[in-house]
Write a protein that binds this DNA or RNA. Structure first.
Length: 435
RNA sequence: CGGGGCGUGGCGCAGUCUGGUAGCGCAUCUGCUUUGGGAGCAGAGGGUCGGAGGUUCGAAUCCUCUCGCCCCGACCA
């Protein structure tokens, strides 16, 4: 993407409405534009990041055996009356009427709908287990939206729903999602810690929240340091095998939000291993048995011919929230420091002197080597503007080319995360970035 | 939902108390100079002050109603 042709606006000054770092930086970097309280338009830079996050979520869901569908944003009130939640959900649900005065709603979640869909086709125990997910915009009419995309009213969520024949099967599905979540967040460069959680209004009796540590987190959390030091990607995962050991590792070390905090258990953790900090919730998984399958009338024939009500769970990741959370965990005074896996572009080519033949030539070759995963700052601006914008936008690599280096065929590489700088030949620079 | 605050060019703000018909910085446009960390000089364009009603000779400033947004708390992916 050539910046001279791109819609990648930046702001020098911070809009007064933005309080926390991720919100400020998303506005300054031109990632989003607020259109009303808790509702955002995603501009090219933000949209690219959102899609990268979404894609990692998708790949790990698929790997874990879940299958992607896409359900609508608008649902009928009748579907929710069947489960009893139309009245129970309260004012957080955005209710609408169509031209025939039919009562509709903008979906805040999809247990009813997915169960209703699944019920139409699943007739036998052979149709189980299944796990269906979609990545779709949700709307929850929060009393108080805030923190930019971290607590919006409209937000992009991945929600998966598992259907199993019995409790043992449901536990297996739960563990699959548990492990898939660890991998998903680790791939984004995040240390996400699963913690025992309240099941909330969705109900059920087994639930974990996944949180990352960040000063601006909304929850107080307590955890064993082992959990921060373990690399969730270090071991291969066999989703058909027994995942209990993995889950046991994570659940045997202390980790809890203040709601579930147990002072006595916490005291058992060696003091030097105790970590108490603020956390941001980025995922939540529930097992809730037959709550919705029973309410929605889902039954399948068991092997013995008797009808069985399947056991369900649901598994959510706040995809748009993750963008904000990742920034909270990866920024400094100058701007964002994207982890490579979700960076909007891997490298920014900074041409410090437009029109200098040697400089232009080196930049062209660098850009060609990485397009479309590169931005080329070919604007008629001064060097300082380009440095500042590249730091703000947070591309993992800056390939800086000016007449001084170009005269001797050198490119200066700057690594955003560390500030490390290297002076390399064109070929070495390309190889270094690709490494 | 309880408490607090704010709406004035794209962004950040002053002006409101003590009514007199809108100002500053950044950004934008033009020209010249400058060119490795958000340049300098000169010139230019852009708002009728969230909205409605009222008081007044006159309202961004006073009054009433209303809409929107933000912060703290309680609740949530």
């Amino acid at each position: 993407m050539r910046l001279s042709r791109a819609f990648l606006p930046t702001l020098k000054e911070t809009p007064a409405d933005a309080q926390i770092a991720s919100h400020r930086l998303m506005l300054r970097a031109g990632m989003v534009r607020q259109t009303s309280a808790g509702i955002y338009a995603w501009l090219p830079l933000g949209w690219r990041v959102l899609q990268k996050v979404e894609q990692i979520v998708r790949e790990e869901q698929d790997r874990a055996g879940a299958q992607e569908i896409l359900m609508p944003t608008i649902q009928t009130a009748d579907l929710w009356r069947t489960s009893g939640r139309y009245d129970a959900y309260g004012p957080e649900m955005l209710r609408l009427q169509d031209r025939h005065d039919r009562e509709m709603l903008y979906g805040p979640t999809n247990e009813e709908m997915v169960t209703d869909i699944f019920k139409t086709y699943a007739k036998s125990y052979r149709d189980l287990p299944r796990n269906l997910y979609h990545i779709q915009w949700k709307f929850r009419d929060e009393v108080r939206p805030r923190f930019g995309v971290m607590r919006g009213r409209e937000f992009l969520m991945k929600d998966a729903y598992s259907f199993d024949l019995d409790y043992a099967g449901a536990q297996k599905s739960y563990r699959q999602m548990f492990v898939a979540y660890l991998r998903t967040f680790a791939r984004m460069g995040l240390k996400a810690i699963p913690m025992q959680a309240d099941t909330g209004p969705i109900g059920g009796n087994l639930s974990h929240e996944f949180l990352i540590l960040a000063e601006t987190g909304e929850s107080q959390v307590y955890l064993h340091r082992d959990l921060l030091e373990f690399d969730a990607l270090s071991q291969p995962v066999d989703y058909d095998g027994d995942l209990s050991p993995v889950m046991d590792f994570w659940t045997s070390r202390y980790a809890a939000t203040d709601e579930k905090h147990d002072a006595a258990a916490w005291a058992q953790v060696p003091a030097e291993r105790q970590v108490s900090a603020r956390g941001i919730e980025i995922g939540h998984i529930f097992y809730f048995g037959t709550k919705y399958s029973a309410a929605m009338g889902l039954q399948v024939a068991g092997a013995d011919g008797k009808m069985v009500v399947p056991e369900m769970g649901s598994y959510g990741i706040g995809v748009s929230r993750l963008v904000g959370a990742i920034i909270e965990a990866n920024h400094d005074e100058a701007g964002i420091r994207w982890p490579e896996a979700i960076a909007p572009f891997k490298v920014a080519v900074l041409n410090l002197k437009q029109g200098d033949a040697a400089t232009d030539a080196l930049c062209d070759r660098l850009y060609a080597a990485f397009d479309p995963d590169a931005v080329y700052d070919d604007r008629a601006d001064r060097a300082g503007v380009k440095f500042a914008d590249a730091d703000l936008m947070g591309y993992p690599w800056q390939a800086i080319v000016g007449p001084r280096g170009a005269a001797v065929g050198k490119v200066e590489l700057k690594r955003r995360a560390t500030g490390e700088r290297l002076e390399l030949s064109l070929e070495d620079a390309i190889a270094r970035i690709k490494a």
